[in-house]
Simulated assay, not measured.
Amino acid sequence: MPTPPRDPKLENPLALLRQLEWRVRHAVENVLSGEYRSAFRGRGMEFDQVVKYEFGDDVRDIDWNVTARLGEPYRKKFVEEREVTVLIVFEDSPSLRFGSGAQSKREALLELAGLVMLLGAVNRDRVGFVHATPGGHVYREPVRGRGQILHAAATLLARPEPPLTDAPLELPWRFLARAAPKHSILIWLGDFPPRPKPDGWLLLQRRYQTMGFRVDDPWDRGLPPGQAFAAYDPTARRLVTLEGSAAERAAHAAWRAQRDEHWHALFPDPLGRLVVGTDQNRLDALVRFFHARMVAARH
């Protein structure tokens, strides 16, 4: 089957984002209950001072050395950054052009990126992006404010599909290390095929809070049952026929296992990675993801 045609909603990305915005705002104000920032920050970034412990303070902040020395409980006080900076890294590889249904993985992943940027706009964060392709990258520095973030998100969603090519796609690791302030949130969106861990990734993990978002086609999870079928492989740029044999299914299962092993190596914390299908609601998955992080931050 050929690659699905471009989703008509992405032909007018600003209109799509405005349609999604009210749903995002409702999710933040009701489901996430105003605690969205704790999903990123936990109990704060920077130590400020030691103060007397008062009823209701978090017991995990008690400084036991000072408490033992002074004979009464004292706790550490933390000061959070004044704002959150979110950097979206969209790895636009040829494999994202695949889709067994009405929507390709690329279109679904772009929608997920737009939703993340809208979350930042609703929460008054600074949001920017890096769009990486085999031909290079485009950078939009983090900005604040609904209008500017909507414009940046529309710019990302309107980026043309990169040409299908054999040229490798290398993320600009050195550039990413200075693309946002220290302690920013870096969300890497891509297809994450099985491959060695990039050398620059460890540096980014030390500098930023890192998360990974992936969109899977149903055929990524398992080959469809039944007779032989044809599918377009965007990485090989040709139509391939699969017989549905036991050997093909075993090879697919091995590929899936290798892919997940690489995925877990990049993001070992389950609360640092999100996988959502092209056949699933992206906003619902995103809300569940951040809600789980918020719950973990409170315990």
Results as ranks from 00 to 15, higher is better:
Ala108Val: 07
Leu20Lys: 15
Gly44Arg: 03
Leu271Phe: 05
Leu171Trp: 02
Arg43Leu: 08
Ala257Asp: 09
Asp233Val: 02
Glu243Ser: 09
Val51Cys: 02
Arg82Pro: 13
Gly222Thr: 13
Pro13Ile: 00
Gly277Glu: 13
Val66Ser: 07
Val28Glu: 08
Asp92Phe: 10
Val138Trp: 03
Asp269Glu: 12
Leu266Ala: 03
Arg25Asn: 11
Met211Arg: 10
Ala15Ser: 11
Leu32Met: 05
Leu10Arg: 00
Gln205Leu: 00
Arg174Ile: 04
Gly147Lys: 06
Arg60Leu: 10
Asp284Ile: 08
Met45Leu: 14
Ala250Asp: 14
Phe290Asn: 09
Arg207Trp: 02
Arg106Gln: 11
Pro218Ala: 07
Gln19Lys: 09
Gln227Glu: 15
Asn281Lys: 13
Arg124Leu: 04
Val138Asp: 08
Ser100Thr: 11
Ala180Glu: 01
Met1Ser: 07
Asp57Phe: 10
Arg97Pro: 07
Asp269His: 14
Leu239Glu: 06
Ala236Ile: 07
Arg256Met: 08
Glu35Gly: 06
Thr241Arg: 14
Val116Pro: 01
Ala246Glu: 14
Lys105Ala: 05
Val79Arg: 11
Leu242Asp: 07
Glu170Ile: 07
Asn281Gly: 15
Gly272Asp: 09
Leu202Cys: 06
Arg178Glu: 11
Arg41Gln: 12
Ala113Pro: 05
Tyr208Arg: 03
Ala121Gln: 00
Gln103Ile: 15
Pro224Ser: 14
Arg259Glu: 01
Phe290Val: 11
Val287Asn: 07
Thr241Leu: 06
Ala121Phe: 00
Lys182Leu: 13
Leu157Lys: 00
Ala132Thr: 02
Glu54Leu: 14
Lys105Asp: 01
Pro234Arg: 05
Asp269Met: 08
Ala27His: 03
Thr165Tyr: 09
Leu171Lys: 11
Ser245Gln: 06
Val66His: 10
Phe289Leu: 12
Pro172Val: 00
Thr155Asn: 12
Phe290Thr: 10
Thr235Glu: 12
Leu156Ser: 01
